[in-house]
């Protein structure tokens, strides 16, 4: 079986188009997620995406409406509550476990309505990228392009605010508004990634390429581009692998490639002092660092 026969199938081209956009968005957002040490917010928003998606299905709305509405609303809520100081992990973990439980409730509600079949929950949890229609792929690609454009627009002030919040505030950067806008982007990205690899695995797509990029270079713009590039390459490799070996689901192959790349980077690149982005890098005028 030649690789080129893959493009004869419309489902594969749809998956490739939507997947490339989603991976690029996840790579860009993921870079900031790792930089700001907010990886677990991404995890939490993935859980919310599951419940939102199934709630929409249970009440007869479009799946994507539920995904985006739930993740964006929760992102704003997290942003609003987060300013009062960090709550303990037990409280956060308990609330998100309950949200997953609520998702299981909506799943049963949906599957006992009769019209649906029991695999809806599985495809929201673990994704079904080969099941995207032409229209769904187009919307996913457009939404991903919008997320990428927003990240590009916010990149400069967001980098400053993430690396040295105090100095950024003193320089008049609207740190709080930026943080909130970024959380909304993370929410939208989690909703996008759910359509590709599912809500449980979206965290891998956000964290793995970004983690590898952070290890490979300390220059912010290089790392940002590298993170997006790695994510897209991993998406292509995963889709190709799953097409060549149909017994392996695409969500697994994408995650497997992403994890393998990250672990290989972790083994070969020893994290050294000065390899990570620090506020000293800003003050020391590291070449390539945006002058603000």
């Amino acid at each position: 079986m030649s690789v080129f026969t893959a493009f004869d199938h419309p489902y594969f081209t749809h998956a490739l188009l939507a997947g490339s956009g989603i991976a690029a968005a996840a790579g860009l957002v993921g870079y900031f997620l790792v930089l700001r040490a907010q990886v677990f917010t991404g995890d939490a928003l993935g859980h919310v995406a599951f419940t939102g998606g199934l709630a929409a299905l249970a009440f007869g709305y479009d799946l994507r409406l539920g995904l985006f509405a739930a993740t964006v609303v929760f992102a704003v809520l997290i942003g609003a509550l987060g300013s009062r100081g960090r709550s303990d992990d037990v409280a956060i973990g308990s609330v998100f476990a309950w949200i997953l439980g609520l998702g299981a409730f909506f799943l049963t509600l949906y599957s006992t309505r009769g019209a649906a079949h029991g695999t809806a929950g599985v495809s929201v949890l673990f994704g079904s990228i080969f099941g995207l229609s032409a229209g769904q792929a187009k919307v996913a690609l457009l939404a991903a392009a919008a997320i990428c454009a927003a990240v590009a627009l916010l990149a400069r002030p967001l980098l400053f605010a993430s690396v040295d919040e105090a100095v950024a505030t003193a320089r008049g950067v609207p740190v709080r508004a930026l943080g909130l806008a970024f959380l909304v982007l993370v929410g939208a990205c989690a909703a996008e990634a759910t359509q590709a690899v599912g809500s449980l695995l979206s965290l891998g797509l956000l964290a793995a390429p970004a983690g590898a990029a952070h290890l490979l270079t300390a220059r912010p713009y290089h790392a940002l581009a590298l993170s997006a590039g790695l994510a897209v390459a991993e998406m292509w490799a995963g889709l190709g692998l799953s097409y060549a070996a149909p017994r392996l689901p695409p969500s697994f192959t994408i995650l497997a490639v992403a994890t393998a790349v990250y672990l290989a980077t972790l083994v070969t690149v020893r994290p050294r002092r000065g390899r990570t982005v620090t506020s000293r890098a800003v003050r020391g005028n590291v070449p390539g660092w945006p002058r603000l």
Binding site: L33, V34, L35, R36, A37, Q38, V39, F40, G42, D43, G118, T119, V122, F126, V197, G198, L200, L201, S202, L203, G204, L205, L206, A207, A208, A210, G211, H214, L215, R247, L248, P249, S251, F252, L255, A256, A258, T259, Y262, L266, P271, T276
Partner: peptide, 30 residues
């Protein structure tokens, strides 16, 4: 830190993906 969290998150997602693979390989278990 961010890097540790990224590693943990990746490994967790990969574990769940492996579970999904086993389920997909075991037909009729969905």
């Amino acid at each position: 830190s961010g890097q540790e969290a990224a590693l943990t998150g990746t490994v967790q997602a990969f574990g769940l993906a492996c579970g999904f693979l086993f389920v997909a390989l075991y037909k009729g278990f969905l």
